[in-house]
């Protein structure tokens, strides 16, 4: 082995770098988060469905919200007709957050887990549920 000390140091650095995620999570157990849909408004619903079916919302809510933003703010159209022909008012604060009044337990749970930082609340006033 020539220049053995330098090469071994480099290799230890390399392995250490690759092992960072393993060290970071050693001894930690994380639970897969489940968004909480237990709010008074949802309890009162006869048929517990969001503006679209659950699977669609789970995958595409961000796109729907983005389309809603464009439609309400840019086109001035505040009526959304869903895939079953039902009409909803396009409004984050009055439609979405009316039922999902638990932002911390509903939105933030998965967003924090997956490190997603939506910029909804740059413009909208975030609900102050935790500060009462």
């Amino acid at each position: 082995m020539y220049k053995g000390r330098k090469i071994i140091t480099g290799l230890i650095l390399f392995v250490g770098l690759a092992a960072i995620p393993f060290f970071y999570n050693s001894g930690k157990t994380s639970v897969k988060p489940e968004p909480n849909i237990d709010t008074p408004a949802i309890q009162q619903l006869a048929e517990k469905q969001c503006v679209e079916p659950r699977e669609f919302m789970k995958a595409n809510h961000m796109q729907l919200l983005n389309d809603w933003r464009d439609s309400a703010v840019r086109d001035g159209s505040r009526i959304y007709v869903n895939s079953q022909g039902k009409q909803f008012t396009i409004s984050l604060q009055n439609t979405c957050m009316h039922c999902h009044s638990n932002k911390a337990e509903f939105c933030d749970k998965c967003h924090t887990y997956a490190n997603v930082k939506p910029y909804c609340w740059n413009c909208h006033i975030a609900p102050k549920e935790n500060k009462t």
């Binding site: 897969k32 988060p33 796109q63 887990y113 997956a114």
Partner: peptide
Amino acid sequence: FTKVDIVGVKA
């Protein structure tokens, strides 16, 4: 496009 279940992936 297909919108993977990122929470499941992270688990």
